[in-house]
Amino acid sequence: MAAHRAEAVTARGASAHGRARLLRRNIPLYVMFLPGIVFLLLFKYIPMGGLVIAFKEYNMYDGILGSPWVGMDNFNMLFNQMQTVTIIKNTLMLSVLSLVIGFPVPIALAIMLNEVRKAWFKKSVQTLLYLPHFFSWVIVSGIVLEIFSLESGVINHWITRLTGEPFPFLYEPGSWVAIFIGSGIWKEMGFSAIIYLAALTTIDPHQYESASLDGATKWQQIRYITIPGIMPTIVLLLILSVGKVMDVGFDPVFMLQNEVVSNVSNVISTYIYTFGLQRAQFSLTTAMGLFENLVGLILVLTANQIARKFNQELW
């Protein structure tokens, strides 16, 4: 032991020796890190390079590098076609609605759970509400389509009994959007509440005690103690969600949509899948993907800048 320590001291003394030692220590680290480097390069950064086909007229024969350049043609086409403009609008509409309606739900849920005094009740509610998070969208969409189905769905069964006419929930744009957003909230509300529940535990219980001694009602306590107490977490998660505004998940749209509501349900990701992969319009859809990614990147960076003003920045 003593010998080792002495060696360490002399190593620190001689800086050239120290540098050699540092390099030697790094060799095994780089061996470990090799798969990581290969992964990042091959599966993250090379596809980014593949984005150049957004500025080309890609064909299989010439490949990514050989295909001819076309400048901004693909982007001009995207922003001038009715169809693609509608798709961009739909993407924004669905995600902004999901954000505005869905964001407060887990906060409210966490505050409600936090006010529950009976442990068994809290635990049972949590167990049920966390569950849908683990379900794939296939399960969730299957359940939704089953329940709201026009002819055999249980809801329409009761509506038909009451009014004589089934309601085409999945075939009306308004109700489809409501179902889409509702099922997203249903799936994630419980699980998203966890992070707020964690934040709530950091609030000092003495604050509530003295507030209620001063005669503050439950509502006032929530408004003046609870919400300010978890404000940093709220801001942080809001930033994260704003950065994801362009990114309407592929799975829920793909599984819940149908031809009748395609005017509101076609979004960027489903467009790229249908036109890019199924109809081989590689360049045009890559341009769409690049646009989506760039806007997303700008949103994240801007949101972080704004957060910095409140000292809540992520980096």
Partner: peptide, 13 residues
């Protein structure tokens, strides 16, 4: 985490 090649470049790769 903030920027990626997207579906088509990944598919081509």
């Amino acid at each position: 985490m903030m920027f990626s090649g997207g579906m088509i470049p990944h598919y081509l790769l």
